[in-house]
Structures are given as C-alpha cells and as structure tokens.
Computed example of a mutant assay.
Amino acid sequence: MEKTPKEMLKAYVNSQKFSSTTEIMDAMKEMFRDILQQVMESELDTELGYEKSQRMSDSGVENKPRNYRNGYSKKTVKTQLGAVDVKVPRDRNGEYEPQIIGKYSRNADGMEEKILGLYACGMSQRDISEQIKSLYDVDISPELVSKISEKIMPEVTAWQNRPLEAVYPFVFLDAIHYKVKENHQYQ
C-alpha cells in the first residue's frame, strides 16, 4: 500500500532530526529543487514522447526525425527560499523549452511580484535589492530591479492616463455606541 503524503512527510521529518529553522528552510529548498527538476524531466518526457529509460522505436512517429536526450545545462534560479541550482534537461534537436521556468528566466514565481510591490510603495532600486537580500538571501542588482519595474511601466502609464468617471459615489458609515449603566439607562 502506498503511503499518504502526510505519512511520508512525518517519516522524512523524523529521519532528519531538524534542530533549527535554518535546517528546515535548507531542506525545503532542496525539496523545491528536486520537484522542479522532476517537473522539467516530465516536460521533456512529454516533448520526446518516451520516458528516460526507454528508447524511441524505429516504428515511432512517421516523418519526424528521431530526437534524444542530450544531457543537462546548469541554471541558477532565484526563489523565495534563496538561490537554487537546477539541471535543465536538453534534447539533441534543441526543441525542448522548459515551461515551468522559461528558457531565459532566472526568477521563480513570486519574486517579481514582491519586487514590483516594493517598487510601487516608493522604495528605491537599491533599497529593494537590499530588502530581497535580507529576506531571501538572494543577490539581485539594482539593474535587475530596474528591468523588472520597466516591465510594468506601460501598465502603470495606461492606468494613470485612463479616462475618469464624472462621478464616483461613496458611502460614509458612522456608528454610535451606547454604554449601558448599571440601572439600565443609556448614556
């Protein structure tokens, strides 16, 4: 019988004997790397039409040249858990492009949104890079912050130049609280 994820996690935690939150974060970073690696392997399996241990037979798809795995290329991805080194699988024909992390992307989900949020709050590019370093232990240059913020600038400009409505209705609510005295009279 297969173990449930909760049982597997409990067995893993018991085997690791964690003594600090830093050790837990490092383990989470390793798990994230392993899951990311497995997702990319599965994507390549789908692209090629066969799994890693199998060979594509000669009676495969007609009129399509055979394509095989062709090793890995190393890539460092900046995540909310810190920098993670992954091995991106390659194919001989160069047709595979990872979907989970784009070909030229170096940031995993979440980091860009945090940078844009800090930028929107009025922080300078250097302050943002220092905040990301202190929060996630990831070095990003002020130039990268600038490039990320430039992505959203057309949307900000469009929002600033949008036509305004003639009237914007709003409602103010006010409440009065009464305190009851001991003789049940209202104050």
Rank of each mutant, 00 (worst) to 15 (best):
E2I: 08
P5N: 07
P5A: 05
E7Q: 14
M8D: 06
L9V: 09
L9I: 11
A11E: 14
V13E: 05
V13G: 03
N14T: 07
Q16N: 07
K17L: 08
K17D: 11
F18R: 05
S20H: 04
E23A: 13
I24R: 03
M25I: 12
A27Q: 06
A27S: 14
A27T: 10
A27E: 10
M28F: 15
K29I: 04
K29R: 15
K29C: 08
K29E: 06
M31P: 01
D34W: 05
D34E: 15
I35N: 12
L36K: 01
Q37T: 15
Q37W: 03
V39D: 05
M40Y: 01
E43K: 04
L48Q: 00
L48Y: 02
L48P: 01
L48F: 06
G49A: 12
Y50D: 07
K52P: 00
K52N: 10
S53L: 11
S53M: 13
M56Q: 12
S57N: 12
S57L: 12
D58V: 13
D58K: 12
D58F: 12
D58I: 13
S59D: 15
S59F: 11
N63M: 13
N63Y: 13
K64V: 15
R66Y: 14
R66G: 14
N67R: 05
G71I: 01
K74L: 08
K74N: 08
T76V: 15
V77A: 02
K78C: 10
T79K: 04
Q80R: 15
L81T: 06
A83K: 10
V84A: 08
V88R: 00
P89Y: 03
R92Y: 03
N93S: 11
G94P: 03
Q99P: 01
I100M: 11
I100A: 05
K103N: 11
S105Y: 05
D109Y: 09
G110L: 08
G110W: 07
M111W: 00
M111K: 00
E113I: 08
L116K: 09
L116D: 02
G117E: 14
G117M: 11
C121W: 03
C121R: 13
R126C: 01
D127S: 14
D127F: 01
I128M: 02
S129M: 01
S129E: 02
E130A: 13
K133I: 08
K133Y: 14
L135W: 14
Y136M: 10
Y136D: 07
Y136I: 09
D139K: 13
I140E: 00
S141E: 02
P142N: 02
L144V: 06
K147Y: 06
E150H: 12
K151A: 09
K151D: 12
K151C: 07
K151Q: 15
P154R: 05
W159F: 15
Q160W: 08
N161S: 14
P163F: 06
E165C: 07
E165Q: 13
V167I: 14
Y168A: 08
P169I: 06
V171G: 02
F172W: 09
L173G: 11
L173C: 09
D174H: 09
D174G: 13
I176T: 13
H177G: 06
Y178A: 10
V180C: 05
V180S: 04
K181L: 13
N183E: 10
N183D: 15
Q185W: 03
Q185V: 09
Y186P: 00
